[in-house]
Amino acid sequence: MSILQKIKNTVRSRSIHVAYVDVGSCNGCDIEVLACLAPRYDIEQYGIYVHNNPREADVLLVIGSMTPQWVDKLQDIWEKIPEPKVAIAIGNCPISGCVFNRWHSYIEPPVAKYIPIAAQVPGCPPRPTEILNAILALAPTLFNDYEEKKQK
């Protein structure tokens, strides 16, 4: 492993940029993501920064039960994120549609049909600690030796 790669690994382990997108949720999970930013959970102490610009993001948090209007737009957002990138489904809705997955409801879960989902955080809503753990567990596997893995 080159020294440059080592420096990159160290720097990136404390610089995870997160964007979140709400594809039709009830706002419960949005509030839990917001709680991560608050002093009690404080995700910035782990070097995680929340942007709402996909072009700056490494991690995309997908929240909500996927309404049909989002089908093409979510793919656009996913393509705008620069490599290396990863998407995490937050809550039950992107996984199964949760309580909205009934007859005559205009939703098309799961989100994994449209963009590749690397991790799922079940719960309605999930605890902020569960969201944090998912991001922190996924980030090293994504960033460590990214350039070396790409060359292979």
């Binding site: 039950n92 996984i95 199964s96 309580v99 079940p122 719960g123």
Partner: peptide, 8 residues
């Protein structure tokens, strides 16, 4: 219990 469906 199915996770991803259960709302606890």
């Amino acid at each position: 219990i199915h996770r991803g469906h259960c709302i606890r």
